[in-house]
């Protein structure tokens, strides 16, 4: 099980558009990826799951995945979360 802790870079948090970009990437990871904020956990490929976590700018979240290349996949997803996707 690989894990990464990330601070959210998008200035308006993980709302519709950044959440859509992120979940789209997560759904193409080839393995289940979980995103956890505090005690709440969601499927990172689920936009409703991700939105339901209510993630704001600066929040810390934990990404986790289990599988081959998990480290590489998490590295890529973590990079998206750290960037300000509203500017992309």
């Amino acid at each position: 099980m690989a894990e990464r802790t990330v601070s959210i870079g998008s200035s308006h948090g993980l709302h519709a558009r950044p959440a859509a970009l992120f979940t789209q990437a997560a759904s193409q990871a080839g393995m289940p990826v979980q995103i956890t904020k505090g005690a709440k956990k969601a499927n990172a490929a689920s936009i409703l799951g991700v939105i339901s976590l209510g993630i704001d700018h600066g929040d810390e979240v934990v990404l986790s995945a289990d599988g081959e290349n998990a480290e590489v996949v998490l590295e890529e997803l973590a990079g998206m979360l750290e960037a300000d996707m509203d500017q992309a």
Binding site: A20, N43, S46, I47, L48, G49
Partner: peptide
């Protein structure tokens, strides 16, 4: 984003 909602695994 709406299309993803319809396809959402959760």
């Amino acid at each position: 984003a709406q299309a993803f909602m319809a396809e959402d695994p959760t």
